[in-house]
Design a protein around this nucleic acid. Structure first.
Length: 495
RNA sequence: GGCCCCAUCGUCUAGGGGUUAGGACACAAGCUUUUCAAGCUUGCGACCGGGGUUCGAAUCCCCGUGGGGCUACCA
């Protein structure tokens, strides 16, 4: 059996455990997605746990945006905040008594000890080590304190932390589901802190206690945790617990190949939502960052669940390319039902064109808007593109594109063409696309000009622009009245 | 500094001893057309370097180099 093979015996239970210190960024979202796909693939359970033990940086607001982000992506949790579950609570700050209990067990068994060193002392030690180009390791001063000194310090120093007694020899070896065998010398691992002086556990301790208690079978997380894994395995061993399987997925980097940060622009998934991206585009995009299946680029959610396995996860970090995301987004917009695009676009349109203010009774307004969206839908890359693209459907023409005007609004023939067009269109009984097309073709033939000779001036007259969807579509949607009115205005403009 | 991970077109990736090293985004050209997109066709473009192992290495091994991570009373 290869070390990369995913070993599954018993129920699959995975977790996504973000710390609420900021929004759900792309890296976190991808980790959540891989966990979720893995769970769904094996018919397992996806647990959401909030690791809010950093009192300084955790916020309730961040919790909300993370939940919102996951929901937007369609990543739902069987256990976690809101609905709870059999292993609640799912907020670490509500589990303090649990960590305390297990920490005490380790003290009792001599596997952890109090450390009374002050932050200043530790800092000085580290600086000294750096100067000597030595490993900035804790000197284990408090590990070997005699009973008397310990008792005295316990009283005199009110700030104390709990440190884990790391074995001083041997190796910690584990099989990573993505990387294969990974080894660490225990001697190089520090006696790291498991309980802070404020009584809160540190990440490496809380995560282990929770993963064990919550019966997590597979820990799938970012590469940045690979070096933490031996420390955590040592804790499992100290308790006599079986560690879960670990799978470390590559991180997502910015264009400069540096860790994702604010410098890389919009990074939170909710921001992408606001910018007009569709969740399925984001899911598809994220899935292809560090994972692939043959030559395929487009994956439905169902396909992802079927095809996703950890052995197909890449090992190298991925730089995210927003062009590809945009391409996927335009693909999914084209595929969407117009009704959905309508729902998604409406808030942006109402904001941009206050006169629009649709209410449920405005059947004509709704019908018009739906036609506008249908005509524009396949050219949108982002939902928000609808606003600039639809301007002439909602506002009167106040100016004509200069370059296009110089080209298409010149000569008496043009005036004549537009006058002719106006007359023919106004005589139309059924104002639909085929009839409109007939008018244009007939006119071109009659006047012995190319079709473009009619269409280009018409486009400019009716939209003020050089670039629009198909002319017949635009005319049909605008409706006879507006079309005639705009043609008149253009004729007048040309003098 | 120490330890760990990683390395195929600009980017995302397929390929895991013998391939014309495949696909996608982006870019360029052509076709189509009613403008612009879209679509279709074509083009451009990569195995980090050096040593081994082997008949044969992008693929396996070692060493370098580069990037990333951990080394916090952050997670």
């Amino acid at each position: 059996m290869s070390s990369r093979e995913t070993i599954v015996n018993g129920a699959v239970r995975v977790r996504f455990a973000p710390s609420p210190t900021g929004a759900l960024h792309l890296g976190g979202a991808r980790t959540a997605l891989f966990n979720w796909l893995f769970a769904k693939h094996f018919d397992g359970t996806f647990v959401l746990r909030i690791e809010d033990t950093d009192q300084e940086r955790s916020t309730q607001e961040a919790v909300e945006t993370i939940l919102k982000g996951l929901s937007w992506l369609g990543i739902y949790w069987e256990e976690g905040p809101r609905d709870g579950g059999p292993f609640e609570p799912y907020f670490q700050t509500q589990r303090l008594h649990i960590y305390k209990k297990y920490a005490e067990q380790l003290i009792k068994e001599g596997k952890a000890y109090y450390c009374y060193c002050t932050t200043d002392e530790l800092k000085k030690e580290r600086e000294k080590a750096a100067k000597n180009k030595a490993a900035p390791k804790y000197n284990k001063k408090c590990r070997f304190l005699n009973a008397e000194d310990a008792k005295e310090l316990h009283v005199s120093r009110r700030n104390k932390v709990l440190r884990f007694k790391m074995p001083e020899e041997g190796k910690t070896i584990f099989n990573d589901l993505c990387r294969g065998e990974v080894k660490f010398e225990n001697e190089l691992l520090d006696d790291f802190i498991i309980m802070k002086s404020d009584g809160f556990p540190t990440y490496n301790f809380a995560a282990v206690v929770d993963d064990h208690l919550m019966e997590i079978s597979h820990v799938i997380r970012g590469d940045d945790h690979l070096s933490n894994t031996p420390r955590q395995i040592q804790i499992y061993q100290a308790f006599g617990w079986n560690p879960p399987h670990f799978g470390h997925i590559p991180m997502i980097l910015g264009k400069d190949k540096a860790r994702l940060s604010k410098r890389h622009g919009a990074q939170s998934v909710t921001e992408y939502a606001k910018e007009g991206f569709l969740p399925e585009a984001m899911v598809n995009f994220l899935a292809r960052l560090g994972w692939g299946h043959k030559d395929q680029e487009i994956f439905s959610r169902k396909e992802l669940i079927e095809l996703f396995t950890l052995d197909k996860v890449t090992n190298s970090p991925a730089v995210f390319d927003s062009d590809k995301l945009t391409w996927l987004n335009s693909h999914y917009i084209k595929e969407s039902l117009p009704e959905r695009i309508f729902d998604l676009a409406l808030p942006y349109l109402e904001k941009a064109y206050p006169k629009l203010k649709l209410d449920d009774k405005d059947a004509a307004g709704i019908a018009y808007l739906k036609k506008v969206i249908t005509v524009l839908q396949e050219r949108l890359r982002l939902i928000t593109d609808i606003v600039p693209a639809s301007e002439y459907f909602f506002k009167d023409i106040t100016s004509y594109d200069e370059k296009a005007a110089a080209k298409h609004f010149k000569g008496e023939e043009t005036t004549k063409i537009l006058e002719d067009l106006k007359r023919s269109l106004s005589e139309l009984k059924t104002f639909d696309k085929p009839s409109i097309e007939d008018v244009f073709k007939g006119l071109a033939e009659k006047l012995k000009v190319k079709l473009g000779g009619v269409i280009h001036p018409a486009r400019l007259a009716l939209t003020g622009r050089a670039v629009t969807p198909g002319m017949y579509d635009v005319i049909e949607v605008l409706g006879k009245e507006k079309v005639i009115e705009r043609l008149e205005k253009a004729i007048k403009f040309m003098g």
